[in-house]
Design a protein around this nucleic acid. Structure first.
Lengths: 266, 266
DNA sequence: CAGTGGTCTAGACCACAAC
DNA sequence: TTGTGGTCTAGACCACTGA
């Protein structure tokens, strides 16, 4: 007979309450990797080989590999095959629960890390992004000054951190805060100095979300990989800005590479 | 001529350096949602409608919607359509930088939150999971005692937190630490008391990763949604366990619903 | 330059939950 | 019951990049 028998019994799995096929494949590959069958730096089989190995379509294989990619286990490279990523332990970031100040400006402990700008910082102005609105206590669509910094590892040249400052435009526009060079000591010196907004208060937030398209491009991440968001908010206690949140600084890093560490005391 | 013209000019996009089609669709839907065209609680069009609307295949539509799902913007329900999720602000979790103790035991500030067990806690034993190995300072495959708790919101009954304690089996097996009921005050009282491991030290870690299959099932998350991992590690300073890490407590929550908040002092 | 992953289409069957 | 999302297949074209 020429009619192909439909052996594609999709539901032989869900009937038994088992996983979808692509999850099975992902699980099998995941185990093979963690068991050591594919050590870090090696390549997993090509897609058409996996296709035969698991007896399913390329789409299913790709979905499984995509899952491992968002988990940070493998990184596919065109023509180069799909490589098992090195799994270094997460690099610790110390939590900024204190701020120090000397005659040169303010220092948060995190700033001590050895990063250098990979691109020149940019300053733009535009509507406040939705996720920043609650941080600044603004209304949706309110204009903000946006200061962007792309920081990288001086050794490898890789981008490892994106830092963006948002400042309410009604406060910052027209001031030195909206200029690329904010002078010695940075914006906090300007706020507590010339602008008379000090003393300043700060509060920190940590959360995570999938990387945006722009973030995954800059940080060389697969789409959907989580980024760790470490946010520091600055509150003015005097002057024209009294009681206002005058800055929200959001730094983002590959969540599979970094963790925030902090001591617990009695 | 009967040969259909191939208008599927896939690369009219990548040529110009633009996004893939599914990213365009995702972006369009994302904007429509955040602009208010599809308010929270409403449904976005069905897949076949979107298919026509964007003039592309269902696969492409589904990939775009899948992206919005991992971003937490929408949640598809079979037969019910795809609903725009309510976007409450992230609920703050206070950071446990201090531990308190009274005659009843140890309290970390996070424990103050009003959660109740949704399932009875379980205690099992098995090989140490790979991601926990570095936390405990063990070798791959070393046995650990695993204490699992599934905590939920007493109001809604929803599961909001998974907490798992890992204890090296060479220290914990056979002790009260491996029993379901660890008695008044909990495991830390046993460690500093009968076992003579105290005084204890603690350290905290925060990171994020995609939810595992099990986690997404329990927490009702879409596959790949990031979970916030808040880990507390216990170090013994005396007794048989001196210098050892005697417990790693990993709590996981939906990263789109929660954030860790902490004060910054001068 | 050619092999690999990246993207897309068209079509099929199924289970689940709303109705 | 039925419409919706969930899963899978087979096949196509393309671009990037390593060999």
């Amino acid at each position: 007979m020429d009619l192909p028998s439909i052996d594609n019994d999709v539901m032989a799995r869900t009937e038994g309450g088992l996983m979808a096929r692509w999850q099975e494949v992902a699980q099998a590959l995941r185990e093979a990797i963690t068991e050591g069958s594919y050590p870090p730096g090696s390549k997993i089989p090509k897609e058409d080989e996996l296709e035969q190995q698991f007896a399913c379509s390329r789409t299913t294989i790709r979905r499984a590999v995509a899952q491992l990619t968002t988990e940070g286990l493998v990184s596919p490279v065109r023509k180069g095959g799909t490589t098992v990523r090195e799994q270094p332990e997460r690099q610790p970031l110390t939590l900024d629960t204190r701020v120090y100040r000397d005659e040169l400006g303010y220092y948060f402990s995190q700033a001590v890390q050895d990063l250098r700008p990979v691109q020149p910082p940019t300053v733009t102005q535009g509507p406040c992004p939705l996720d920043v609105v609650p941080l600044l206590g603004l209304q949706s669509g309110d204009p903000v000054v946006i200061r962007d910094r792309v920081m990288g590892d001086p050794e490898t040249g890789h981008v490892v951190q994106l830092a963006t400052s948002y400042l309410p435009a009604d406060l910052a526009a027209g001031t030195v805060l909206a200029e690329p060079d904010t002078g010695p000591g940075g914006i906090y010196d300007r706020m507590e100095g010339e602008l008379g907004w000090g003393p300043l208060d700060w509060e920190g937030f940590i959360t995570a979300r999938p990387a945006t398209v722009e973030e995954s491009r800059l940080l060389s991440l697969a789409p959907g990989v989580p980024v760790l968001c470490i946010t520091r908010v600055t509150i003015a206690t005097a002057g024209r800005a009294e009681g206002r949140i005058v800055e929200a600084n959001v730094t983002r890093r590959d969540a599979s590479r970094f963790e925030v560490r902090y001591p617990i005391t009695r």
